[in-house]
Structure formats: C-alpha cells, structure tokens
Design a binder for these strands. Structure first.
Length: 555
DNA sequence: ATAGGGTTAG
C-alpha cells in the first residue's frame, strides 16, 4: 500500500535516517511472538557474569531488565546490557511506557533498536505509530508507516488503524477517508476499530452527522457489531448535531444489545436534551442513571443546568446552581455563565446581574478547561451585550468597569461596544471617560458618532475637552462637528469664554472655521462681543493663509 | 499482542 496517496507526494522513507539496519522488518504476526526466548541471547552482548552467577530466577531478571531500560540514563548501553533477555512483549511494554511518559527520544531509540535486532512485532508498529502520532506531527507517523517494507505489516488492520487515528487526531479527515479507501482496495477488511476511528473524525468536522450515518450503515452491512465505544462516539455526534431523537434511538439500541451505558453515554444524551430544553426527559434520565448506580458528576449536572435554563425553569436552575456550589462543582465560571446568560436573554437583567455579582464575590476561577480562552471575559461581554440591549445601560457600564479594572487584559472591541451602549443610554459623561482612555482603539466612525452626540447633548463645559481628546488621538475633526459646537455655544451665550477658547485653539491644530460657520458667528457676534469675535476670526484667517505661503516659499 | 470514545461554555 502506498500512503503517498494521502498527501499527494511520496514521503521520504524513514530508512534514510537509520541506514544499514532496518531494511527488512523481518516481521510477521506469526514469527514475532513465536521466537523462543533462548534465541534472544544471540542478538546481544549480555554480561556473562550476570547470566551465569545470578541466583535470581529468569522472571526476576526480566523484571530487572525492564527497570534497567526504563530508568537508565544511557539507554543505548542499557539495551545492550539488558535488552537481550527480554521478549518482544516486554519491549512493547517499555515502548508504551516511554510513550506515556513523553520520553520521545527514548521511544524512537528503543524502536530503532528493536528494528535492528529484529525483536519487533505488529504490536510494536501499532503502538509506535500511535504514540508518535500523539506527540509528533502526523507526518512523522506517516513516514514511519511509509518506511515499512514488509507487505504483511503494512497491510495489517491494527497498523492501518493506528495511522488512521493519527490522521483523525490531527484533523485530516479527508486524508483518513483516502487511507480508508486504500485499505479496502488492498483487500483489507476494516474492523469495528477502523469504523470507530473514522466516526471520531466525523465528530470533528462540520456536517459530520450524515457521514457518520453512512459509516454506520456500511459497518452493519459488513456484518460488524457496534460496541459501547462506537455507541459512545455516535451519541456524541448526535448530541452535538442536535439530533435528539436519534440519540435516544442509539441509547435504546445499545441497551437492548446488552451494553451498559456509562456516565459519558448518559452525558451525551442529556446534552442532546439541553439543546431543546427538554427538562422532563432529562429529569427522567437522571433518575434512571441513579437507579443504575451511577452518580451524576459535575459535567452531567452542568448539562442539566443547561437543560433547565434552556427550558426557562430559572427557579429550578437557581436551585441546581446552589447544589453545584454545595458539591464544590461551581468552582469555575461555567455554571454561572449558563444561568446568567439564560437570564439575560430572557430579559431578567437584575437576576442576571445578581448571579454575576455572586460569582465575583465567590472568586470563581477559570480551571483550565478554557484552554487559553477567557471565559470570564466572554461572559462579561455577553452580559454587557444583553444589558445594553435591554436598556440597562449603567449596569452594562459597571460590568465593563469590572472587566476593565480586573487583572485580565481585555479585548479592544469592548471599548467600542460599551461606547454604543452608553450613547444609547445618553450616558455621555461615562462615554467620554471611555473615549479619553481608549480613543486609539476605537474606530473613527464611532468616535464621530460619539463626538456628535456629546456636542449636541453632553455637558457643554466639556465640549472643548472632548475636541482636544479626539484630536490628540489622531482624529481629524471635520467642519460639521465645529459647526455643531459653535451652534451649541450660540444657544448659550453665557458660555462665550468657551467659544473663544475653542476658536483660539483651532488654528494651532490646523483647523479653521469654514465660511458658513464664519457667517453664523458674525451674525450672532453681538451676543459675545463683536470685537472679540472679529479679532479671533481674523487670527484664524492669517493662520489659514500661513501654511500655504510656507509651501510657496519651499518651491 | 495491537488499533477506537469522553462530555460543560449562546
């Protein structure tokens, strides 16, 4: 079989890295385990002193040899010293041990030694490919597979299944399907492990549900029997694709076929119910689960919380959250987030806020499930969104501030979002604070909208400050805004000083009033003292001419 | 002897 079909080009055989020894993998499923133990000694230089004088039993010496190889600081000499006494099965155990403890160097060194001394079996290849695929790139695992020259090893189901799982694990669904077809073309009979592996692939892709159904049909057609693992994967797929009835059907089938469901099977089914908020069925399932002697764990109860929230049973959900707290299952933000978000969406803003406050009081932490995510921030942002949408502008702002002054870094887009909410709520002074601190992270159109609304409706005493702040953030103030500001001052002539201040500030920053604003000012100049206005405007005029004459001089 | 699953968060 040629794996190159999977990536389209022929992969470099691994042989190149270990030149003279591993050409002929001298492996077949029959010879590997049938090697008589005495023959091991001809491959290595086992210390004669050890083998002859040791009073220990052969079994004990094997155990010692395993420990020697697992813990030696020099694997090469440990293998020379202790490798000979061991059977292939023992070496496979050590191989898996190195894989489990992430000792990659030792893992490949031992495998190379096993190839060289031909103490290697199908199981060694299956394990090695699986372990390498877990920690290294799948390409590396494929190279290993490609380097296998022995047909019966290459075409072995468990070896192929290992490669399949490497592909699936690294998200290469299409490649895994290609390999699957190649396997069948080579006359290999896929087994239930093959199908389960491919089903896992279906659970990781979009629209995997119908592909999963095809595979189930095919495996049944081939006379294979679904087991509890296969059912587990299928239930998972149903739950995440909103296929509640189908999940129920598979759950029933597996029971009928004599497979006892575990917490994960129950969990998937509850999860399927949670999408629809089917609390009656979920409650019933929890009862069945307890009757079966299983204890609902944190994940199951959290899913149940989701069911209640989705079903609108907020009192029951609140009660369940208390239970979760009592059980120590509410140490991360997830359950609070579920309830809060449900409340916020249903318009129960005050209740959502109180759950939020409670969560903060309890110093709930992120527990690593969030993998680099910032769920606390996400839930805040969701709450801010819902609070803003339902008109609770100042509450939204208080949550923004918790985020802002919390230790976490926050996403720049929050500034813009809260700004819109504050403007909707006419909380312009708060909006001003947000702009002042974050002007550079806010897009120009939003700045413009803010400035316009502040100039029209904000505190008149702060208009000039707003102008200065947005200007120094790099925003070029347009005539429309100046005109609005000046009209506002004209409406309140007692703020004449502020108007003059603005007019005097403008030319220094390269701004001049346009002719219509100028006329507006002159028309109303008696309100402010015609003399002063005229003087200030003429200064602007001089400034406006100055840069142009400067340009001329340069030429 | 080897290969396949494991969950919560719009």
């Amino acid at each position: 079989m040629d794996i190159s079909c999977v990536f389209g080009n022929r992969l470099q055989p691994i042989i190149l890295t270990h030149p003279p020894f591993n050409f002929i993998p001298h492996v077949s499923s029959t010879t590997s385990t049938a090697v008589p133990s005495e023959s091991h000694f001809q491959h290595t230089n086992v210390s004669t002193k050890h083998t002859q004088t040791s009073p220990l039993s052969f079994k004990t010496r094997q155990t010692d040899a395993i420990l020697d190889i697992q813990h030696s600081s020099d694997l090469g000499s440990a293998l020379t010293r202790s490798g000979g006494i061991l059977r292939v099965e023992d070496l496979n155990t050590v191989l898996r041990h190195f894989g489990k403890s992430q000792k990659l160097k030792e893992l490949s060194q031992l495998f190379a030694w096993m190839q060289r001394t031909r103490k290697i079996s199908i199981a060694s290849y299956s394990s090695y490919i699986k372990l390498m695929g877990k920690s290294l790139s799948p390409v590396e695992a494929l190279k290993i597979y490609d380097s296998i020259k022995d047909e019966s090893t290459r075409n072995h189901v468990s070896v192929c299944n290992s490669v399949l799982s490497c592909l699936v694990r690294s998200g290469k669904y299409d490649s895994s399907v290609k390999l699957f077809h190649q396997m069948k073309r080579n006359g290999l009979n896929p087994d239930i492990v093959t199908y389960s592996t491919l089903l896992v692939g279906c659970s990781k892709i979009r629209n995997g549900y119908s592909k999963a159904l095809d595979l189930v049909q095919e495996l049944k057609y081939n006379g294979l029997i679904m087991d509890s693992v296969t059912y587990g994967i299928l239930l998972n797929i149903c739950a995440s694709n909103n296929r509640c009835e189908e999940a129920e059907k598979y759950f029933k089938n597996m029971n009928d076929e004599g497979h006892t469901p575990n917490v994960f099977h129950y969990g998937s089914l509850i999860n399927a119910y949670s999408a629809k908020g089917n609390y009656k069925k979920a409650d019933e399932l929890i009862v069945n689960m307890k009757d079966a002697g299983l204890v609902p764990n944190k994940v199951i109860l959290t899913s149940l919380l989701k069911v209640y929230v989705k079903g609108g049973l907020f009192d029951k959900a609140r009660e369940l959250l208390n239970d979760l707290e009592a059980l120590g299952y509410a140490q991360n933000e997830i359950p609070y987030c579920i309830l809060m978000d449900g409340l916020a969406k249903a318009g129960h803003i005050q209740e959502a806020k109180s759950v939020f406050d409670e969560m903060n009081e309890k110093h709930v932490k992120s527990d690593g499930y969030s993998k680099g995510h910032q769920p606390e921030e996400e839930l805040c942002s969701s709450l801010i969104f819902h609070l803003g949408r339902t008109g609770a502008h100042s509450q939204a702002f208080s949550i923004y501030n918790i985020l802002r002054y919390g230790k976490r870094t926050m996403c720049k887009t929050h500034h813009e979002k809260i700004l819109h909410i504050l403007m909707d709520g006419k909380l312009l002074k708060d909006a001003y604070v947000v702009v002042k601190d974050n002007a550079r992270s806010i897009p120009r159109p939003t700045i413009k909208k803010f400035a316009a609304s502040f100039i029209k409706f904000g505190n008149i005493n702060l208009i000039n400050d707003v102008m200065k702040v947005i200007h120094s953030s790099g925003y070029k103030i347009d005539q429309g805004l100046f005109e609005m500001a000046i009209s506002r001052y004209i409406d309140q002539p007692e703020k004449k000083d502020l108007l003059l201040q603005l007019l005097q500030w403008m030319p220094g920053q390269g701004y001049v009033v346009d002719s219509s604003t100028r006329n507006l000012l002159l028309k109303n100049s008696k309100l402010f003292g015609a003399q002063q206005i005229a003087e200030t405007l003429s200064k602007q005029h001089i400034f406006s001419k100055a840069p142009r004459s400067g340009e001329m001089k340069d030429k």
